[in-house]
Design a protein around this nucleic acid. Sequence first.
DNA 1: AATTCTGTCCTC
DNA 2: CTAAGAGGACAGAATT
Length: 715
Amino acid sequence: MIYFIGNSDYKNKATLQECFDYCFKKEILGIDIETTRLYKQGTYDESEYKAGLDPYLSKICMLQIGDIENQYVIDTRVIDISLLIPIFKTNILFVGHYLKFEYIHLKHNYNIVLENIYDTMLSDQVIFNGLGKSKDNPEGLRFSLEALCDRYLGIKKQDNNLFNQDEDDETIDKSTRLGFINIGDRDFTEKEIEYGAKDIEYPLLIKSLQEQNSYFPKECLSLEFEFEKVLGDIELKGINFDKEKWINTYNEKLPIYEFRLKKLNTFIEQNYKNFCTIPDLFNTEQNCDILWSSPDQVIQFLRFLNICPKEKSKQTKKMEWTCGAKSVLKLLPRNLKELYEKDIDIDITDINTFLLNYLLWNKSKQCCTTFGEEWLKNIHPITKRVHTSYTQILNTGRISSRNPNLQNLPADESYRQCFIQSIGNKFLNCDFSSQESRVLAEVSGDKKMLDFFNNGHPIHKTDFHSFTGTNMFSLLRNDPDLIINKKDFPEERQIAKTISFKVAYGGSAYTLKDDFGTSEEEAQLFIDNFLNAFPDLKSYFKNCEENVLKTGYIIIDKTTNRRWFSPDFDKLEKINKEIWSYFPDNYRKLSKEQREKVKKEVYLKNPHVKDMWSLYFTIQSSLKRTSLNYPIQGLAGSQTKKSAVLFRKYCIENNLQDKLFLVNLIHDECSAEVNENFAEKGLQILKSKMIEGAQFFCEKVKMDAEGNINTNWSK
DNA sequence: AATTCTGTCCTC
DNA sequence: CTAAGAGGACAGAATT
């Protein structure tokens, strides 16, 4: 039964007291809200922060609460729901779809904090992790409420025209949510009330069906539900931002960019008239006609010079002309490469110095585009802070950030120092020490690595990369006394560092050769040496690969049983079966010569079998790499999530939320604000909660974190 | 004119 | 017997 509380002319009315009496004694309730604009259109620029979605630009116009039998739909424009607040202080489990939205708006508008939650969207993303829609898998699952209604309840979208017909989950979510944006004072229609009620009924039904899934990782889900509130807090609070400093940085970088651009144009104008504009009545000058920001045009010029490199395109998987730094750098001598790394300008005297200048210009371009004045639109019109939006569950279990992306700001402190504390506070920045390497030590159980992290090292102390270097190069150079350190062997140490990062990230000789500027064979030699230096790694990696090929999924962390399911696994087995159907049953029992003969015949008769092999190995090797990479990235991601959850819990239990709170998370790094009189203690709390959260997933290796107190984000 | 694709860059 | 860690933003080009 649907009950309406408000002015609309609806058949079943209830009072707020009746709603309270019904809900207060329940164990589980569905919850949903609808929002509308708080200010009239045009009051604020809504290009980045949108009315109806952004809590500061919205108000709640409808609150839906209830269970499968009875739903209460409340017009919060005319009803003061304060009476209901005790419901949210009980142990009742609140069920809904993508509750971060409800969490943020309820907290902002009513100081209601949803603590005990079950989110049907996050649940499905965890249960079917890997099987979602993506570029590579456009037929994959969607996780909008509409998609879940279809999958679990057999309810199609045309049954409910509040749902948008759009393809994309993101826009469905938004357009559904924006359905009430301009409702103003108009009464709700009967349909709006009934669909509002359905939006709490559906998640309740879906929840009970999700729980019947053979894979239902309770621990992982509860971690995500806890973490959802962390992200809600951060998004609502935002991060304080020094606009003036940003503009100063921009004003410092802009002349460098323009200087480089001028040099490029002058070079063309003086030497390549055929790449300049043709003079006419209106413009007698011959200006450079190459648009440097256009890869096409730059490639055209490099091809004219006969020096354009080719690279296998990620998109087309074919060799394509390219003008990217990675390839162009290979054309340059060592001393110029160094200038590129160090960002140092040099006059254009020949093609090489021209190329260097182009690369440097390209590098400084971003300072004026992505991180230029346009970036300032990310400052919230009301709070004057920067409020990012996080995507909570990627395939690995990591998070991502957008509008703006706070995870890919240049590490260069000129940008990071623009993120500052509020008045009376300090800025805390804390990150895990060698998180990924420690995770690798944990999951592989490599004794040498574990010993290093757990017991320290007499010579290398805590410098893992030097330690790795010593292990690698003493083997490689057959010199047991060789000791790599930062001062005397910076290059060897750098190689060791790159290797351990890339190997942990699932990199191969092919990707490493670019980092080293060596051949693939040499890169492979370094990898082999890395694996030899830590002898337990090989068997661990082999085990990962075997497991994924056997089961079709990867256990990302066994503590919460987070998994990733391969969307191609069935296809892989099918292809394999089909390939072998072309071979005689006794093929494997034949002698080597006979096998060669049969193989040739099969390929001659069925040329497409070769293509099938190719596809088979493509999928298989991708699976193998994923099986190495995801447990490292993903376990580390889970650690950071758990840390933030423990930190939030501690702050609430000790009533510190206003004195100490997170403002950003980047994979292995937590940033927080703390009351200046509490800074030391705050840092100690953050650090200890990070270590505790990380240790939750590791029984073999000791995790560590380090941090500092500052007035801004930079170190 | 609006949307999608591609190449390039930045981060961890 | 291939492809080659995870993401997001921007500009230009292609497509509708």
